[in-house]
């Protein structure tokens, strides 16, 4: 019974990891860069949710969309100022782009953390829960109602995000740019708008993850670090750029951590992801769902 309990709790946290990871995967899929400031989008969401509800007293339900907006805005501005030079009129950047992208997004991460530390301060802010504390009996299982609600919202948001990318007009443009940037631009897709959109969605989703977890993990300047590290593990596990892969890997990581924390060691719960990652890299370097690409 304990095992089933742990698996369910692992899945709950896994769906929230997935919110982080698919944004990262989306950016990589479309722009071929890894955003090392992803954890800070999460941090922005966690702060937005906690500070708005704590200072104005509005319902946390209204704070959720505001957190999404804050994350999207930061994503949008980051893309516009720092990422766009990679593909807008810098033809000879081809052999520099990976280095630039790594350094500049890492610099952005440090900047956002230190700005939060300076402006908001190093204190932690825990956001209010969406519902009064409750226990929900689900068959034989007794679950924390707020965690279950966060996971349910996470699933709903994931479904909306995946549906948007799959089926909407703009989602199809995103897919086109992901496959062939130049080709898509020749076919009339607005690649700049698509890139901004991808960063806005990615920032918004990460911020929502931060907001949904803010009642459980209080917002601090470096609160995004562990969620980010976990989403890096997840996207490598799931195969860089694969959204279904990211979702499956998120759930897997959630369950593995939840089980290992009880059966192996609680203190080292954050290290098991790396162990899984190293095993996967040893035996299946392209990730669980990634495809070996053509290199030459």
């Amino acid at each position: 019974m304990l095992v089933a309990d742990l698996v369910i709790n692992g899945l709950i946290i896994g769906f929230l990891y997935a919110l982080m990871a698919i944004g990262l995967s989306l950016i990589f899929g479309v722009l071929r860069i890894v955003n090392f400031a992803h954890g800070e989008f999460y941090m922005v969401g966690a702060y937005a949710y906690s500070l708005i509800t704590l200072s104005s007293g509005i319902s946390p339900w209204f704070a959720l969309p505001l957190a999404f907006l804050a994350g999207s805005l930061v994503g949008l501005v980051s893309e516009r100022l720092l990422v766009r030079p990679l593909y807008a009129g810098y033809a000879n950047w081809g052999f520099m782009r990976d280095e630039y992208a790594v350094i500049v997004t890492f610099g952005l991460s440090l900047l956002l953390i230190s700005l939060a530390d300076k402006i908001i301060g190093p204190f932690s802010y825990r956001g209010p829960t969406l519902l009064p504390p409750s226990r929900i009996e689900l068959g034989p299982f007794l679950l924390n109602g707020n965690r279950l609600l966060a996971a349910a919202l996470g699933i709903a948001i994931l479904a909306i995000a995946v549906g948007f990318v799959r089926y909407s007009y703009w989602g199809k443009q995103i897919q086109a740019v992901a496959q062939n940037r130049l080709g898509a631009s020749l076919a009339g897709a607005n690649v700049n708008v698509v890139s901004s959109l991808v960063f806005a969605i990615s920032g918004g989703l990460a911020a929502l993850a931060g907001a949904l977890l803010a009642p459980f993990i209080a917002a601090t300047p470096d609160v995004g670090l562990f969620p980010a590290v976990k989403s890096y593990v997840i996207v490598v596990l799931g195969g860089l750029g694969s959204i279904p892969g990211s979702i499956v890997a998120s759930l897997l990581l959630g369950v593995v951590e939840s089980l290992a924390a009880v059966y192996i060691s609680y203190d080292y719960r954050d290290t098991f992801g790396l162990v899984v990652l190293i095993l996967v890299l040893l035996f299946r370097p392209q990730g669980l769902f990634g495809q070996k690409g053509r290199e030459v």
Partner: peptide, 23 residues
Amino acid sequence: IVLRLHGPYLALTTLAFAEVVRA
């Protein structure tokens, strides 16, 4: 383990390694 791979894998894995070792 990591350097057989190209691209951003090293950055991703070392970042995870750094945080995990510290933890």
